[in-house]
Every structure is written in C-alpha cells, then in structure tokens.
C-alpha cells in the first residue's frame, strides 16, 4: 500500500494531469456527454415499465404499479408466441447460417483459380450491403403470383396452381431463414476463411506425406483447425438468442395470415408501445429482452472460460 503522503501527492497530480491534458479532455468530453444523453438517457425511461404511463403527466410523477406489466407479459399467451417465434427464428438463422458459411468457406478454400475465387467472394458479399427493404422487394418479385418461382414450378408440372408463398404460415420460417442466409452467407464466411488462413501449412504437408486425399485433409486438418473459431462464434451467438432473429425482414413481409409466426419481440414492443399506446408494456418487453440478452452473454462468457477458450469480453 502507498503511504498517505503519496496519496495526497497523487490527488494533487489529478488536477495537474487534467490541466496538462486539457486539450485531450476538450476533444473527448463532449462525446461522453453525447453518449450519456443518447444511449444512457433512455435507460432512465425504464421506469415507465413500472408505471401506468399516461402521456399527460411528466415521467417521474406517474403512478407506480410495480411488476404489473411484467406479470401481464408472463401470463399472456401472445407474449409466449412472440417469444417462441423470436427464439425459433434465431436458432434457425444461427444454425443454418453457420453451417452455410462454414461450407462456403471450405469450398472457397478449395478453389485453386485465384480470379474465380475472388469473383465468387466479391459477389457473395454483395447482398450484405443491400438494405432489408431492397432484399424484401427482390423477394416479393421472385415469389410473386406471376413470379419466376411460381412459373418454373408450374411449367415443370410440380404444381397446378400458383402459390402465394408469403401467405402460407408453414413457409414463414423457412422463407425468413433462407432469405437471411441469402443476405449473409458470404459475409459470414469471411471470418471462417480467416481461420482457415491461420492453419499451419506444415500440417497440410504432413497430411499429404501420410497419403491424405483432399477430402481427408478437409476432414482432419481444415475442420479441426477451424474448431476454435466455430466454438467461439457459436458461444457468442448464445448471447444473440433474442436478437439474431432480426425484425426488419419480418416487419416488411408480415401480413395478417403469417403474423402469428413472424412477430418478434421488437415488433411486439413496437405494436404495443407505439401503435396501441401501451407504452409501459412496450418498455417492459424491451427490458426483458435486454436483461435476458445480458444474462445469456455473461453465461456464454462463463462457458467459454470453463472450456478454456479465449474470453469474449
């Protein structure tokens, strides 16, 4: 421990240091004020979830009602349907998305013609940069009653009648998953390609000497080499269980027929909060999402620690 004299000295030097660093302080503190207002300010609004918020009164003079809105949520069937949709679509997106990206990275890695490899990569990243509005517009065009998909299936004799793909509840989840993969598979493969690039080339040489063919090298060298990355990303995705479903796609394709399957927590908060003006309920479901996400993230970090992988945060 330091003796008190030095502590006093360091106290004095706090102001001295602040003085000598005043230019750095001037360059950074306005942005701290900015982030406190815009990102921490809304946290104060969490109190709404414990009130019966009515817009007529100021926020801190609203009547407190305790956990009423949370109890309403947890006893409401609608909320469980929304929670189910959110989790199912997240798991489908993460699961199939991960498989697709890993497969693409493995296949790209086997392309020996550099120019072709670069072309495939460049084009496969493109959809990531298109907005969800554009993607849904492209999707609507392909799935149109008189669109390509209907015409091809009908002229092949697979179906007699055109289908309204976006009005079939059974197809809602597959369409969401496939569209999300279409948008993100290329982008998602980047990190796995980086993992492959980090594998020691000597391992491949040794495998060749041992007589391994291409598939065996993929199986016994490349995949094990990617394992740490795959594990870390899967664990990190646990923290995204309530957000990985996304909401923009669902909001843009939703209609009365498939809403029961496409409504996610964000859309639920939007619907109750801004459209029916049950502000407190909307805020409560937002708090639920944030707290569960943080708990899952911390849990995932713990799992990573236990497994001896590099900690995430």
């Amino acid at each position: 421990m330091r003796d008190s004299g030095i502590v006093k000295g360091s106290k004095a030097s706090f102001w001295q240091r602040a003085g000598s660093q005043r230019q750095l302080i001037i360059m950074s503190v306005p942005f701290v004020i900015y982030i406190l207002i815009f990102k921490y300010g809304p946290l104060g609004g969490w109190i709404m979830a414990f009130q019966d918020y009515r817009p007529a009164l100021p926020m801190f003079r609203q009547p407190l009602v305790g956990f009423k809105h949370f109890i309403w949520l947890f006893t409401n069937d609608q909320f469980y349907i929304v929670l189910r949709n959110t989790i199912v679509m997240a798991v489908l997106n993460i699961g199939f998305g991960t498989i697709a990206s890993i497969t693409l990275a493995l296949l790209l890695n086997e392309i020996k013609v550099k120019a072709f490899k670069r072309t495939v990569q460049t084009i496969s990243y493109l959809p990531h940069f298109l907005s969800w509005v554009i993607v849904v517009s492209l999707l609507n065009n392909i799935l149109h009653v008189e669109g390509v998909l209907n015409n091809v299936t009908m002229s092949l004799g697979l179906r007699e009648e055109p289908r309204l793909f976006l009005q079939e509840p059974r197809l809602a989840w597959p369409i969401v998953t496939l569209t999300t993969i279409w948008k993100n598979v290329g982008w998602g493969s980047i990190i796995y390609l980086a993992a492959i690039a980090g594998i020691d080339p000597q391992l491949y040489e040794a495998a060749t000497m041992d007589g391994c063919r291409r598939m065996q090298k993929m199986r016994y060298v490349t995949l094990p080499g990617m394992k740490p990355t795959i594990v870390i990303l899967l664990i990190m995705n646990i923290g995204r269980t309530l957000t990985a479903a996304g909401f923009e796609l669902q909001l843009l394709i939703e209609n009365g027929i498939i809403r029961r399957y496409t409504e996610t927590l964000e859309i639920f908060a939007l619907h109750y909060g801004l459209h029916i003006r049950q502000y407190s309920l909307g805020a409560a479901s937002g708090i639920f999402t944030t707290f569960v996400s943080i708990a899952l993230l911390l849990g995932a970090n713990k799992i990573a620690d236990v497994l001896g992988e590099e900690s995430l945060m």
Binding site: S28, I37, K39, Y40, P42, G45, W46, L274, T290, S293
Partner: peptide, 29 residues
C-alpha cells in the same frame, strides 16, 4: 497512452454495445 480518462471513456462507449434501452424509452427520449 497517457490520457487519464482513456479507459473509462472506452468502457462507457463499449458498454452501450451490450445494453440497449429498447424502442419505447428511446422513442420518448
């Protein structure tokens, strides 16, 4: 490296990547 608030400011910003107030409180702000 010498900037005294370097760590605390970094933390204040990175923390916002994990804690999201949600749609409704943000709308009211």
């Amino acid at each position: 490296k010498e900037y005294m608030f370097r760590r605390s400011i970094t933390f204040i910003f990175v923390f916002t990547m994990y804690v999201n107030a949600g749609l409704i409180p943000t709308y009211f702000l």
